[in-house]
Design a protein around this nucleic acid. Structure first.
Lengths: 250, 250
DNA sequence: TTATATTTTTAGTCATACCTAACATTTGGG
DNA sequence: CCCAAATGTTAGGTATGACTAAAAATATAA
């Protein structure tokens, strides 16, 4: 496959992508500083990447990502974020340690495993037996083994949760909403995506499909676009699209 | 740190370790075949490893691991196994895919994350809200998102489990046993380690401490030694030692 | 025990990916 | 508009880790 990127080149790609997001122009120096390498190393890497048509580059010229390069970079970033989120949200690892680990592991994780990490994190959030509280439980005592009391406390909390859910269900099935009605930071599970005019099709392909867990990241002042995260991807939706997505809030 | 082993050298070390376990003598050819490299590459790697005093090696001589080399190899193997077990037991990944992924990721996983994987797998097994059934639930529908019915079924099963546990508890707290009374394949949680004559100390250091989950791998015909797995380590205990470990069976 | 086959090593290449030192280009202040 | 300072590139070196081809050592079979 032509896509035989080395770990090193992936790092360069990721750095370029992130610098573009932060400022406008990408300078070799910025890349060098971010990756902790010398300037000539950057030049060399840029040449390799240009050869593979992932960056547009000519000596002394501005640096930019080609469409293919941007896609490859996004893929690296996604791997990084999925790993980091899993470590933080599921394994209760401290933020900076999680980020560092993700940095090291992002190059070697196969697709199958990555998708499973995402699925599992969703499962934990969505399943009545999991949930945030459960993970916090894990976090609280991940230093030492569980004691008898922990177990009892745990059972109590499940019972309580189940009762709570039963009550909610008897009243009004699930609290549902349209995706565009959620506030930043809120999470929800996709129940249904109505698509009439070709638009719905696309967002399904990006991961917004029934069962998926979405998180609202940012809503622009005008209520559009709406930035969300789903399955490790960052998406930006028009209100028009968001209105067609039915959500069960978590 | 002097322990700056490259991924490649770790692979060689691991291969040597495994070949030693399988047959008596390690030959360069076996290593080459297992790793899919040429013979001269093996010679080169052996020289590197000998320089670092991890293998005892001289041209045309027999190959063996030094104590430090054996420890390093065991560490690599442990990382591999912890990853593979996590992928299979928690993420419900298919055996061979899990193994392949572990092979690739074993070199880049930091210690913190590794220990968390172990802890989390234990947590899932031990916690009343997790358990094998829960993981099977995840495995069964990891292809698609959870449906309403899944959730309801899930709640039922928690309730049932909780009732079951309550009943057990009211009768007789927990079913306990000595470690030496368990059969191969059985798992349990360590409740207590009694140590009088210096022996108990050592096994605690190896990971057999309250809260840890142990699994019996093999019991020799004479009832001794008892091979167990705990926290990703493989240990071999004398009956004398196993008798001092109190277990809650799972 | 000698001849052949197998295994292992040496020698020499190549590619990646880093480095330092020196040269080239661009940019901004006077 | 010209000259430093900053930035970027080339040239040349090192280490790793793989390879092929050929030589050396060991093992095996007649």
């Amino acid at each position: 496959m032509r896509n035989a990127l080395t770990a090193s080149l992936e790092d360069y790609l990721e750095a370029i992508f992130q610098i573009i997001e932060e400022k406008q122009a990408v300078r070799a120096k910025d890349i060098a500083r971010r990756l902790g390498v010398s300037n000539p190393s950057v030049t060399g890497a840029l040449r390799s990447l240009a050869e593979k048509e992932l960056v547009a580059y000519a000596p002394y010229d501005v640096i930019s990502l080609t469409p293919r390069g941007k896609a490859a970079a996004r893929d690296v970033v996604r791997r990084h974020e999925v790993l980091r989120d899993f470590f933080v949200n599921v394994l209760a690892v401290e933020e900076s340690a999680a980020d560092e680990a993700a940095c090291r592991m992002e190059h070697s994780i196969p697709k199958v495993i990555l998708e499973r990490f995402i699925r599992f994190a969703e499962f934990v959030e969505v399943c009545p037996r999991g949930g945030e509280k459960w993970i916090r439980d894990f976090g609280a005592r991940c230093g030492q083994g569980a004691t008898r009391e922990d177990c009892e406390r745990c059972i109590e909390s499940v019972l309580e949760e189940v009762r709570h859910r039963k009550r909610r269900e008897s009243r009004k099935a699930f609290p549902t909403a349209k995706l565009n009605e959620l506030k930043p930071g809120q999470k929800g599970k996709v129940l249904k995506v109505n698509f009439h005019e070709g638009g719905g099709r696309k967002i399904s392909e990006m991961g917004v499909s029934p069962g998926a867990v979405v998180e609202i990241e940012r809503v622009s002042p005008m209520g559009e676009p709406i930035d969300i995260k789903v399955k490790g991807y960052h998406l930006s939706l028009r209100r028009e699209e968001a209105e067609e997505v039915e959500i069960e809030t978590l």
